[in-house]
Nucleic acid binder design. Structure first.
Lengths: 240, 240
DNA sequence: ACTTTTGTTTGATCTTAATCAATGACGATT
DNA sequence: AATCGTCATTGATTAAGATCAAACAAAAGT
């Protein structure tokens, strides 16, 4: 893990301002954040933190990918989430005094992050009701996300989860063909979806055979987004 | 669903003060809450709200049990959580404007609840940084809870989940024998643990055969808590 | 270019828990 | 006490996905 002091340029301010959680801060508050910022470089496979460690920082990913995971006693790995560039993470679990990270964070490829001190951010939260509300609404969304996640795991089967994942990659406007690349290895996506790599591969194969998609390496070509959508359920917003 | 106006007695204030989220409010703020409180009576099986409905209230359960659930398209029911007396619920999802309940809430047995208006509580949150922090720390805990839930679903098997549930019923100090009653039907617990009733029954039977527990009706007798603990993993606080 | 490592696919087999079906137990109602 | 409905248990069978094993492909190191 390579720490770098953070260059004091105009771009700095702009970069911090773009972060959702900091968008309501005044100049003085932002200056305090800025002063505690450190930039971190991670190699492929390197850990940022491990489950059970004290939480003293939260992070914003600038480049690369971070997977949040847990290991079972038998050594099985479950990926809970894959962080993409632009996202902040580990900021929602800082409220229990002496709290610990509930998951480990490991770099996929090499990554660049900014790290922020919890203590300083909490002090600012005490002054900024607007920022409290931003954080609360963010936490709200995440609570909802986990509920959908459990829905997927318990009421949906492996194919549904995988199709859901594929559809999640498609921007809203497309309804016909769409092509994208997996930005991370397939076995990581598989673990994220709680599917074994072998099963993951077989499901893709079957969707191919059914004429819904074509997969070549990391490239996925969806022949008809709407038809693929028929394979799943919109898990949110069901009345009755 | 039977609405009742809320009696204006001294007990009222005390009852509201005991609610964790209201413990930091001043008299004037509590009075505003009090004015919007309604008491609700639910029959066995009656719904308090359904998934997809607009969230305008949150609740505190006084008596009975409430299950939070989702239905799959095929009609399968998944219980996400069982609310016990004293708990507040549906308060963490009110921050998205025009937000909707992510689950349905149905009464087990008959229940008595207090309902509070989101709008009024949000106004108070804007004034009370302390209450914001209470809510945020509450949401933090719940986020962690869902992560543990997914750990249980993906890294643990049905027996582990059931043993975890049994151990969760045991207050900390006991390490030898302990006896308790299931307060809700077994099939609800089964769904809560994502296990079919048949499998649930078979696992209890097996634990019995292994000399770990004795089950008679709703009564569970654990012969040796520590020995039962060996069957599982403490999912939280694992470093390395 | 060749070797090694890592990741992916394919086939055969196994395991866990679900499903299907029937019976039994219990509580509530009459 | 008899009946009904709900809930729980038990047995037989099935199915989804995991595991094991091997081949294959692609990337990385030498």
């Amino acid at each position: 893990m390579q720490y770098q002091s953070y260059p004091d340029t105009l771009t700095t301010e702009q970069e911090l301002r773009q972060i959702y959680l900091f968008s309501c801060l005044n100049d003085q508050q932002l200056a305090r954040i800025k002063q505690s910022v450190r930039q971190i470089q991670l190699e492929d496979g390197e850990y940022l933190f491990k489950q059970g460690q004290r939480t003293e920082h939260f992070f914003m990913l600038k480049e690369g990918h971070i997977k949040l995971l847990r290991l079972s006693l038998e050594g099985a790995e479950k990926v809970f989430e894959v962080i993409l560039p632009g996202q902040t993470f580990a900021e929602a679990i800082i409220f229990l005094p002496k709290s610990i990270y509930p998951v480990s964070a490991q770099s996929i490829n090499s990554s660049v992050l900014l790290s922020f001190e919890n203590k300083i951010f909490i002090d600012i939260l005490k002054e900024s009701s607007a920022t409290c509300f931003q954080l609360m609404s963010y936490m709200s969304q995440r609570l909802r996300m986990w509920i959908n996640e459990i829905d997927n795991l318990t009421l949906q089967n492996a194919t549904h989860r995988l199709v859901n994942y594929l559809l999640y990659q498609v921007p809203g406007e497309h309804s016909n063909v769409y092509e994208f690349n997996f930005s991370i290895p397939k076995h990581v996506i598989a673990s994220r979806l709680s599917i074994k790599p072998e099963t993951f591969s077989r499901i893709l194969h079957r969707l191919n055979r059914e004429g819904l998609i074509t997969v070549k390496g990391r490239t996925v070509h969806i022949h008809n987004v709407d038809r693929l959508r028929l394979q799943t359920v919109n898990t949110d917003s069901i009345i009755e």
